[in-house]
């Protein structure tokens, strides 16, 4: 079975150093880059499928990112993915969701797969639309909000537990299919020392736009210049004032909290 994990290199939210450049595009040079949190969950799900079927599962990471994305993907390879494909091209800087989906779909057309896994959303985009858009462009069934992924190679189908407002819906579709995964898939493993060593020799194949048969201009252009949305303005939200600090006995503190809530008409 072949599984592709769409893994986006994003600025590390924990570093809180993200910023926009003068062109109002994400300054991808400034912040340390990590694999998007939700994409680590889907990678973990793929690795668990591989663990359950030793030797039968091949996992490929696919990303669209600047060239240094190869180093970010290395962590996913150290966790156990077998290889990576990095679509990288200067013309892709500033791509919108539509471009991104087109590029990822083109990259997938060049690969063999039974399952494509996308994350619920990205920490830098928070859209959650790229997965369903890629599925649509490739006419794949889309199984979203997955808490569990169970492919069955024998029947060629995949079952997914989709989070619903009242519990879970169990979805089933023929493969190849695209699954959008969530944190409930499981805590991502740490790379082992052996994994880190072997990741060094794993391949991250670079792909340019031309390699994918796409172009940054003309009909059907993708990339920053063809972006269909523009950031026109930015502002910093007003800072909260310093917190009122309450110490003392619990009853006194509770009384002060209740008074504070009443003052703000919250009770």
């Amino acid at each position: 079975m072949k599984i592709v994990v769409l893994a986006k290199p994003v600025p590390d939210p924990a570093a809180a150093a993200e910023r926009l450049g003068p062109d109002n595009r994400l300054d991808r040079a400034v912040a340390p880059t990590v694999i998007n949190g939700n994409d680590e969950y889907t990678l973990e799900a793929a690795l668990q499928i591989a663990d359950a079927h030793p030797g039968e599962v091949e996992i490929t990471l696919v990303a669209m990112a600047p060239a240094n994305g190869a180093e970010t993907l290395r962590k996913g390879l150290a966790m156990g993915a077998h290889r990576g494909v990095l679509v990288t091209d200067p013309a892709l800087a500033g791509s919108d969701a539509w471009s991104t989906a087109r590029v990822l779909a083109a990259a997938l057309r060049d690969l063999e797969f039974d399952l494509v896994l996308a994350g619920f959303d990205t920490s830098d985009g928070v859209g959650g639309v790229v997965g369903p858009a890629v599925a649509t462009l490739l006419r794949l069934p889309c199984l979203s909000s997955a808490a569990r992924i169970e492919p069955d190679a024998a029947t060629g189908t995949v079952r997914v537990r989709r989070i619903s407002p009242t519990g879970f819906d169990v979805l089933e579709a023929p493969m190849p299919a695209l699954v959008v995964g969530t944190q409930l898939l499981g805590t991502p493993r740490y790379p082992s020392l052996k994994g880190i060593m072997s990741a060094r020799t794993k391949e991250v194949a670079p792909r340019s736009l031309a390699d994918l048969g796409l172009s940054a201009d003309g009909d059907g252009a993708v990339g920053g210049a063809a972006s269909r949305t523009t950031v026109t303005d930015k502002r910093t939200p007003p800072a909260r004032g310093a917190a009122r600090v309450v110490r003392g006995s619990a009853p006194d503190a509770a009384r002060e909290v209740a008074a504070f809530l009443a003052e703000r008409r919250l009770v």
Partner: peptide, 24 residues
């Protein structure tokens, strides 16, 4: 909507209508 169903619909429409999307 920006929730699970809304984003599924939005992403699918993005592909079907060859449109543009702003999220969240």
């Amino acid at each position: 909507g920006a929730g699970p169903d809304g984003r599924d619909a939005a992403g699918t429409l993005l592909g079907l209508l060859d449109g543009a999307v702003l999220v969240n």
